[in-house]
Structures are given as C-alpha cells and as structure tokens.
Design a protein around this nucleic acid. Structure first.
Lengths: 136, 136
DNA sequence: GTTTACCCTATAGAATATATAGGATAAAGA
DNA sequence: TCTTTATCCTATATATTCTATAGGGTAAAC
C-alpha cells in the first residue's frame, strides 16, 4: 500500500506544478484544497525541501515552490524520498539493498526471482514519468 | 513492502511444487527448510488450503500438498490471497476497489493516474508468471 | 514591533503485521 | 480401542510502522 505520506506528497507536488507562476504557495492553501491535515503536510513538505525538490520562503507572502521544472522531476526520485524502496523486498532493491536473514542463497530464491521482475516493471513506470506527465 | 506472510506463503508453495511426487509434506519440514516460524507458517498454509490452493491430510503421514499443477497456479491469484490488493491505492484496485475519502474526483487525480500505470505493470508480471515459472 | 508563515523535535494514538499459546479434531497404525 | 501423529482453530500478545498532533522557535515582511 502507498503510504499517506507519499500520496499527500505527490498531491502537493502536483498542486504546485499546476500553478500558473512559481510563486510561493502556503501550506494551508494546499492542505485545504487537497484535504490534508495541515501539520502532517507541513512535515512532508519539509522533507521535500530538504531533499531538493522544493524551496521555501518565510514570512508574509511565503510558502513553498518547486525548485525544478515539472518535467525534470522524475517519479523514481520522488518515490524513493517519500515512500522509500521501490522494490517489495530489500534483497532486490537497488538503493536500499539488504540481505534476507532467512535466505541462505538469493540466487535460488523464487521470491527474489519474482520480485526482481516486479521491481523492474515498476521502475520502468516511475522512470518514464515526470511530474509534468502525471498532471491531469 | 511484501509482508512476511506473502513471502513465507510463496516459499512454502515453491517448496511443495519442487517435490518429486505430490505426497503430503509436514509443516515442520517446510518450516525448517525455509527458516519459518512453524506456528506462523501453519496459519498461512491454512489460509492457502481454505482458498483452494492446498489440500491437507491429518494424522500420521499427513501434511500439505498442492491441489493444482504448478503451471496452473497464477501469481495474481496467489498474491491476492496472501498479500491482498495488487494496486497500491484502493481507488485503482480491480478486486478491492474503494473510493478515496479525500479525493473529490479520481479522474482528475494525479496519484490515481500514476498508480493505475504501476498497477497495470505489476499485473502484467503476475499474470504471466505461474508457480512453475518461478521455480529456480 | 507585530503579524505571518515556515522550521524543528518529540511524542502520542492508531493500525497493522508478526508471532505465540493452548487446546480440539481427525487419521493411521498397533 | 488406544496411542501417536499432525492438522485445525481461536484468541491474544508483541512489535513495528504509520499517521497525526503538540508546542514552541525562527525568519521575513510590512
């Protein structure tokens, strides 16, 4: 399941991407329009800022804005920040690899084999979609 | 993330599929060979029996065995029983559909749009792989 | 200097996943 | 029939993660 964090984060990004200009948008505006808890959204936007997706401005007229252009924001990067690994098991993860404790040999593991295919297919989708592509 | 339940269930299925004959295999044997908690595995096998994947036999010489042939066991079906929805959000699920509470209109939702693609790609993998295909 | 709005950490509450306990039931074989 | 074997079943404990809230701090604008 997609976490709410990811869902809300994606919604906030698309909300910002669909603005006419790139002026700062306040948290409260995004929260209201997308039906998100304001404080929860705040922590999500904060992590998107720290990872280089968003810029922010304090004080009156402040808010968050996109740093890159929507067509430069690739879904793989967004998903890894918000959701974590794209792979469903750590042993097939490119960016979050971990050996399975219970598996003596992952080469001969059916779960590993299947999940490798699932990861590749998901990766293909995320790689070929930017924020601009998913604006509907 | 793939739940342990699914992981263990898949491992048990492949263990059974790789038997020479289709005689009942005891829980304890599977549990030891695949490093799974015996009692936890028990509840997983039980649910696989109730959903028509496994048969069981009580008493001495008893155990679990596959009901269908490995090449007739499609991963979509297995995954839906063990893991639940294949979709990452209920609003794009074929078998577990639910409307998002926070979304006024899913047609104009970017998350919906993206996750539809992810679901389709995952579905393609699961549909084209049977238990026989993932034996390595 | 007052208002506005982001910044930051800690933690509480809820949900889910994982595992365990303890006995009931049925089959097989002596 | 009696004993052993092994599945059947329900309830509950434990751990982890997710989601959200609380409460104040900091910087910018006017």
């Amino acid at each position: 399941m997609l976490s709410k964090k990811t869902k809300y984060g994606l919604k906030a990004l698309t909300y910002l991407a669909s603005q006419k200009d790139n002026k700062p948008v306040q948290i409260v505006e995004i929260a209201k329009n997308e039906n998100i808890s304001q404080k929860f959204l705040e922590s999500i936007l904060l992590s998107l800022r720290k990872t280089g997706f968003l810029g922010s401005k304090k004080g009156k007229g402040g808010g968050y804005y996109l740093i890159k252009k929507p067509n430069e924001i690739i879904m793989t990067d967004v998903m890894r920040i918000l959701e974590g690994p794209i792979a469903m098991v750590p042993c097939v993860s490119l960016n979050f690899y971990e050996k399975c404790a219970d598996c003596p040999d992952e080469v001969s593991c059916s779960v590993h084999f299947l999940m490798l295919k699932v990861r590749d297919s998901a990766l293909e989708v995320y790689r070929s979609n930017t924020l601009a592509d998913i604006l509907v």
